[in-house]
Design a protein around this nucleic acid. Structure first.
Lengths: 136, 136
DNA sequence: TCTTGACTTGGACTCCGTCCATCGTAGGAT
DNA sequence: ATCCTACGATGGACGGAGTCCAAGTCAAGA
């Protein structure tokens, strides 16, 4: 976790109280929070932090590759601090809960050349949907 | 296309001018339109159609399984009339273009039971990302 | 300590979508 | 053919998520 702060400092981040708090909130739990949840948790430690700052900081963390953005069907985006181990997501269609999963197989291999239409395909994203134990 | 209207009638749809127009707009092109685009095209034929009606109708078509909803990273949802042949999407990371693709394999089988966390998994969505020929 | 440009603030704004009270009408009943 | 009524349409208000901006603040290098 101070790992994260360390890496950020090395990349020339100006270290402010706000950024520190946002990074710590994300680094704490391995849950996928929405921007507003991050804001609420950050505000517990730093009451005057603004929503705009949380959005800015999350955006920066995403473009630095420290955090993944997971957008779920029409709901608010969630931020996934587990950016280093590759994984896919299992989403509850009812309450929106997300779990990380590690499927076997390689979906990239399942897309034949003639189905690529000249695209340079670099990434595959697999989302499993269903009902979680509480909603099922 | 009158196929579609036929099927809808059979399912007890009350056939109104608005619904007919929305169904025809979707059925015409095989492009993935946003709700507002559908509204604009529908309004060419039926100037007074309201946004709410377009949203309602699209929602009904989706829950009847006649149309698929494709939500793209933070932007407006798009509606995919090609609901009968199952397919996945190939998205250009740069310009947002979407192509339908038909990968081989069955990703559902790639998620072992111990990675399901008690969820009832019913659906898998695979999105391939990369650069299209014009952006590559 | 001073300076400065990067960062933060918060409120207005936009975009996408939903809600709701009211009005209109498709289509079965007569 | 006409009437009835429940289903559908309307449009304006509303709500959530996210962005923008002008003004104020402050981290950190000189």
């Amino acid at each position: 976790m101070s790992d994260l702060l360390e890496r950020l400092r090395e990349r020339g981040w100006r270290m402010t109280a706000q950024r520190r708090v946002v990074a710590q909130v994300l680094d704490g739990d391995h849950v996928h929070l929405t921007a507003d949840e991050v804001h609420a948790l950050a505000a517990e430690r730093l009451p005057e932090i603004s929503r705009a700052t949380v959005y800015n900081t999350l955006g920066e963390l995403v473009s630095l590759g420290e955090v993944l953005e997971v957008s779920t069907e029409g709901r608010a985006k969630r931020y996934d601090p587990n950016a280093h181990r590759p994984h896919q997501h299992l989403v509850c269609s009812d309450c929106g809960t997300i779990r990380d999963v590690h499927p076997t197989g390689n979906p990239l291999a399942d897309l034949p050349a003639e189905e690529r239409f000249g695209f340079t395909v670099s990434e595959v994203e697999v989302t499993y949907r269903g009902l979680c134990p509480s909603c099922g």
